[in-house]
Design a protein around this nucleic acid. Sequence first.
DNA 1: CAGTGAGCGAGCTTCCGCTTGACTT
Length: 762
Amino acid sequence: MSKNLVIVESPEKAKTIGKFLGEDYHVLSSKGHVRDIEGQGKNSIGIDFENHYQPNYVIDPTKEALLETLKKEARKADCVWLASDEDREGEAIAWHLQEVLQLKPERTKRIVFHEITKPAILDAIANPRQIDYNLVNAQQARRVLDRIVGFELSPILWRKVTTGLSAGRVQSVAVRLIVEREREIEAFEEQALYRVTADFKGLNAEGKEVVLHTELNHRFTTKSEAVAYLNECKDAPFSITAISKKPQHRSPAPPFTTSSLQQEAARKLKFPVSRTMRLAQALYEAGWITYMRTDSVNLSGLAIATAKKEIVGEYGEKYHHARQFKTSSKGAQEAHEAIRPTNMSIASAGQNNDERRLYDLIRKRALASQMADAETETTRIEVTTRTLPYTFIATGETILFDGFMRLYVQSTDDESEAGESILPVMQEGGKVEATGFVGQQTFTKAPFRYTEASLVKKLEELGIGRPSTYAAIIDTIITRKYVERGNVPGKKREFNTITIANGKMTDKKKTELYGQDNQKLLPTDLGKITNDFLVEHFPEIMSYDFTAKEEENFDYIAEGKAEWEKVVDSFYRTFHPLIKKIPSGKVDGRVLGSDPETGEPIIAKISKIGPCIQIGDAENGKPRFASLKKGQSIYTITLEEALQLFEDLKPHVVAVIDGDEVITGQGKYGPYIKYRDAYVSVPKGKDVMTLTEEDVKKMLQEKADSQKPLRSFGDIHVMQGRYGCYLKTPEGNVRLPKNTRIDQLTEEACKEIIGRRVKSEK
DNA sequence: CAGTGAGCGAGCTTCCGCTTGACTT
């Protein structure tokens, strides 16, 4: 029997460590936190404000059975080793375990390891310590503060905006980033500039004719300036006045963290954040990669050594360069290593193509981080003419030694960064002849909209959120409908191109599409309204450095320089009065004007079911409502458009079939059409106003088909319902098991299914 | 829940971080 029980956080880790420690050690896992502050599904904040903010911890109901097992094993063991991660949360997990399992301090030891290798684990076992209560208290402060913010702010939103909303230290700031970026884009005023490019032909070192593509190092703000300059260029004599070469180094990026993996997988493989994490989890569970939720760029000694062996073996000594990276991101806790293959020499791993592609990315990035710098030479050729200012410049880059680039090159968000080319070898002072000039109108670009991955990157820079929560943050703000993933169609615009060829100037207008965006995070009206309310009344919590400031306080607690209750108290004393100050009533809608018929006010606002127009108010009779259509916004809808929405609600004839009218209506379950005795719901996303006769016929036909039994056995009919197939009987409906083969169904089988149903109801 | 075709209002909702669940009628 095992004399020792070791408890880690992850089951996979438990498996690996179990192998290293042998029979005297039984290694189990807690699967994360086991307790949390009471309040899940209850109308309770779970904090005793009268008693130093004491949290009321309750066991996670899904962990009951696991804790029973741990308790039993702990009783059997001589010593329990709490081996959760070496960070704030890990320390808290260890403490909660000690409490819940009622471990005796003299038979409990706290250990941490920095890498999962046999020597590292044996070293940890040889150097146990006690639970660090300062660290635990730092976590309690973090947890209690988040609970207070979340559970005091959210109900305010239910009251002021609409039910079911949420606010929090992390999610609300994430929404703010997206809202503000969208407004920057809306307010962006593009500036037109003229860039001038020119092609020159001349002789290279071997006397062969070559062409140089150059760009002028000046941009003109007006067309007339550009035209004037180009006119001067037309007959001017040009020559090469300078050639310079500069050697440069390029260093590899560090191995992946959760955030950088999400970014690169999004850019290179087009994976959404959630997919990347699911695939990484699978690779981790299969033992191919190290832990995927980390903010560390650290590599273990073993990893660095195997990387060296792999690189030297594959590419030679010259390509190897051992490096250790330092984490720069704010608030990093570094309980794990960087994300890397567990065995660098395995070139391919994964159960499917996506897993293999992600593994490949992880491996190449990790190996490249241990490779030599790339050495390049940038060449710059300057072409000028004596009579004119500014310089035409051609730049080129040659790779002298590819180094890490042989394996992996990091991508960027800015796709416009085109690769530079190799320049011909030419003589300084050599004459060149212009073959053409182009002055093209270009425009400054609005800031980028956030993608899932670039939002995560921004949050990480601000120290907001943790690797284990990045994917969940995106999920939350989308489920709450503050933000949606979407595309923005491009707009057309004209631009001028002035060309000089064969001594002739031509001036043309061309059109281009700009501002098109795909799969970006876009704020909804609800997101904007909620954000504006929070920013107005809770500027401190909504500020981008709120988390960083609080993290400083948590660090003081962790260092034993501050008491956690006092940190929470000083926050609460300024925060809670703001909550008290919020006036009753909803946030104001946008007033569009008044109803020309009744004179009642018309406002655009958020209702329970989404953005809507309201005519009249509750004090003066019953208000009327109409939902906004897709693409419409509270912020931009006009009075005319609003009134039209009410017109659209009125019954009207959309078609006439065989002499009978098809009429629209508004029902309990949304818009519908009625034809003779049949009611048919208008499919989501379709507008009653734009239904064609063809649509109507199709809808009626589908409805008729759906009411036809697939098969019939006397009184029993096999029907296709919204949730699968079911049996319609005079006594009621009975659902069919999922994989029933309808074509093989017999009357006996149906009766048996009905019989079973009747029995189970008793 | 398995087709419904008006307008009541009760009772509910929520945070951030750790981690892997999964229930079959």
